[in-house]
Amino acid sequence: MDARAGVRLLDPPRAPVIASEAQLRALLASLSGVDAAGAEARAAKLATRSIKTSSKRAALDMIISMIDLTTLEGADTPERVASLCDKARRPDARDASVPSVAAVCVYADLVGTARARLAGSTVAVAAVATAFPSGRASRRVKLLDVEDAVAAGADEIDMVIDRGAFLSGRLGEVFEEIVAVKEACQHAHLKVILETGELVTYDNVRRASWLAMLAGADFIKTSTGKVGVSATLPVALVLLEAVRDFAESTGRLVGVKVAGGIRSAKDAMRYLVVVNETAGSLWLSPTLFRFGASSLLNDVLMQRLRQVRGAYVRPQEFSAD
């Protein structure tokens, strides 16, 4: 069923060129609304899927490979980031069959540390930028933030959108900022954080998703993890519908990153099911789906070990950081 769930591309694909704010506004207004009750019911139904035995083992490894192992605290130190990088490269020191995570995600000033520590690995370095998490700075400062991170070796940039501008209807401003950041990223991949908890409605989430994709986002991401409401299953559903429909109408594949509050393997598994049954199996890859998380990794490792040992294991089996 999974292959059939895949998207079909327009031939030839066409990505609209946004030439004016009015055009952007009209395009976003033409998107279908989201019925909140229906979206939540759909997500809840998918959450009842049961992943067992060998599928579960495969899914656990898939989750690990999709993690952006994240530390975004004022108290972060180079030592902590170094240890995080070691864990990212080899999540279980005793078991080489455990895949590396997709990336480590840090503040821009620690990109250099991470870059050095991860040399020779497949793990990417992601930096949050653009006055993360509030986005409250001038365009100039935001772009400098991005340039700094890229110069320090960041492979991926996680930017925040200007939610105030979006909510007050200054869509062109939000769009232009993403375009400018994308340019500043150069080769680095751009993840655009919508901060869905502040956008509040699913309609806003859908429109912001399309706005970010039209402006050039490589990924759209739910949350900073710094506000009350982070990723939820129905929000992920709306994002995944957006990337699916965007791919069908433009031919361009955009990734989705869910972040904030995903702590258990069971939660993560539910997101995989939503990915599988919404965007399709094509998105079941770290190139198109990521978890922004820290404690999730240990829970997945514990579940994985439980599968191997056939018994529940102690949390202390894996280092806290």
Binding site: D2, R8, L10, S55, V275, S281, L282
Partner: peptide, 19 residues
């Protein structure tokens, strides 16, 4: 309409029987 895109290297998320 074009062809369906190929699935990724990780393959599908199969659901084993969960009876």
């Amino acid at each position: 309409m074009g062809e369906e895109l190929a699935t990724s290297h990780l393959g599908a998320l199969a659901y084993d029987p969960a009876p």
